[in-house]
Design a protein around this nucleic acid. Structure first.
Lengths: 334, 334
DNA sequence: TGCGATATTTATAACGTTTCAAGCATCGTG
DNA sequence: CACGATGCTTGAAACGTTATAAATATCGCA
């Protein structure tokens, strides 16, 4: 381990015969510094490979240059967490912000880790997923005026920044496709009540129902958070009933697979005896069942947008919140 | 935003009528501080919710209390990245270390981001995956004596800390199972030459070949890094030949699916016309093909072990490197 | 020539922590 | 009773920045 010979402002100052303060301001492009000086300082700094010290900056300015991603280890759907992470990190590259990842269990105690981050200034902003209609994290962060971007919306009247997939459009488009294939009774596996996008999916389906008069079913025994085994068993059971749905909207790859296998137990084959439209995230479905009808949610670009949005907020705290509703592939939209 | 009223050492010092230095050392459990004082300071600190300032500490001590995970956005196999992340973050919880995630593309320039971290002291230790036999990251980090744990081994003589799955045992066990099912020609999809575990898989197969005299095939047209489409097309093509393999070792879920579908194009059905043993990571295979023969690699515990290992190294830099070869499920071992 | 205005630069003081050397009681001992 | 130990506490400096205020150089103009 080298005896810490990293160049500092002092190094650059001595080399250029200027004061530390001058160098600091020159590098900050302060217009009060003579153009010639600025150029010389920049050159010297570059030549010795000066890189400002994060700790010193953070201590002095209070800005951590850290963005915190709260990740729920429980409920990470196949590919979702990774795609989000990739989107965030790539968008953050070169921005000077570091992404630190903290585990937090949305269902048990979603607030404590965030409070810790806010009160102890561990980050400049937070990003999280699995947003609830009256999310306590959102409420808390709004109260303290702490910057954040959520994946998913809330029902608070006060606006805040979020990025979300248009699940309403997804469910509607999916339902319309199923109807187009002749389905008479459409079923959708919804997320638990606690998550906002449950309603969006439901509205999407209901709109299609209103428009077409098709029959529908929303199971109460299972949710999108149920294990694949549970969904599988439920599907297998319902497949044996007379009023079994002949069309499924699956807002996730896992639920699709579980249902297709559950029905498969009764030799009901997707595309022949029933139909399904799945939300694709990892894209694996097109390999498993190439003929599966899917609508893609691009979580990676969602991550990129969230990162850019948060950086923008941090850069200009006076800017109001902004929202991004990511549309479904227009080919599927009605 | 509140006007920064966070308690500091000074706060605690004033409240307890002691000097800042005393408080600092009391909280550090310095035995030179009177027992009574230590207790009082601890009490006061707790009562005001004192939490040491990371930036100040880092500036003073040089320790960043950051561990950096280098994540390759390209090649993250289904569930691998997320499982690793979950393992790391949960194991790191309460350790005081923050996990920051940096993207870096193993194939294009694996060194630069790591050099940046080392020379600019952005972290106390690094964790990375996709290790090569003569990995330049390992070489570099060993040279500077910078703490790290790799997922995967190298062929350097100088030992270093790593955690790895026993891919040799996996391939061997998989081959033996295939042979037990009557396979005559076994094929394994290997990772590219650049990755160390390619050899481990190969050795595992070769050992089984030696022991049983079975025929084998190692494709050169594709690798584990090939897209599912490519593997699918390759499998579909080879399925039409006379000497097509009747047993597959798939060190990944994607490759299994691609092959099963490629063979499926010729109406060859897994379990009937050919067999396969897949490495399961996300566990999704048991839902897609419940009868699939899989051997599980628990990437999450790998992550936990890596995190603990690195923390141990950072706690005692004089401790030598240590290695963990994670065994396959003993039920499958021969 | 001199004086205020303007353009640059700089010294200094923080930010919150740890550590080093020094401080000050208290005490046993010669 | 003085004197060095001993046990505990503390002042001051430093880590690398940035912000504030003050200093210095430069200049136009009376």
């Amino acid at each position: 381990m080298t005896p810490t010979n990293r160049p500092t402002l002092k190094t650059v100052a001595e080399m250029s015969g200027l004061a530390v303060a001058t160098v600091s301001r020159a590098l900050a492009n302060d217009p009060k510094i003579a153009e010639a000086t600025r150029a010389r300082v920049a050159e010297v700094a570059a030549s010795v490979g000066y890189v400002p010290d994060r700790a010193a900056r953070r201590l002095r300015t209070g800005k951590t240059m850290v963005i915190n991603l709260m990740l729920d280890p429980h409920f990470e759907i196949l590919g979702f967490g990774n795609a989000l992470l990739v989107g965030l990190t790539t968008a953050l590259e070169g921005s000077g912000y570091n992404l630190v990842v903290t585990p937090h269990f949305t269902d048990v105690d979603s607030l404590t880790p965030i409070q810790h981050i806010v009160t102890n200034r561990q980050a400049d902003g937070v990003i999280f997923t699995r947003t609830a209609p009256f999310d306590e994290r959102v409420r808390f962060l709004l109260e303290c005026g702490f910057p954040f971007v959520s994946h998913g919306r809330t029902e608070f009247t006060e606006p805040h920044s979020w990025v979300d997939f248009d699940n309403e459009a997804f469910a509607h488009a999916a339902a319309m496709r199923l109807i187009g294939k002749g389905c008479r009774r459409i079923c959708v596996v919804l997320p638990p009540e606690s998550l906002t996008f449950r309603q969006h999916l439901r509205y999407g389906l209901m709109r299609a129902v209103r428009e077409s008069g098709v029959d529908f079913h929303i199971p109460t025994e299972i949710s999108l958070d149920s294990s694949m085994e549970e969904i599988h068993d439920w599907a297998s059971e319902i497949a044996g009933t007379d009023d079994r749905p002949d069309g499924f909207i699956c807002p996730g790859e896992a639920s699709y697979l579980a249902i297709r296998n559950g029905y498969g137990k009764h030799d009901y084959k997707v595309g022949r005896d029933f139909h399904a439209v799945a939300k694709s995230i990892s894209g694996i479905l097109s390999q498993i069942d190439p003929e599966t009808d899917t609508i893609h949610e691009d979580v990676e670009v969602a991550g990129q947008i969230m990162a850019r949005k948060l950086v923008a907020i941090l850069g200009d705290p006076d800017a109001g919140p902004s929202q991004d509703l990511l549309p479904i592939d227009p080919r599927f939209a009605i």
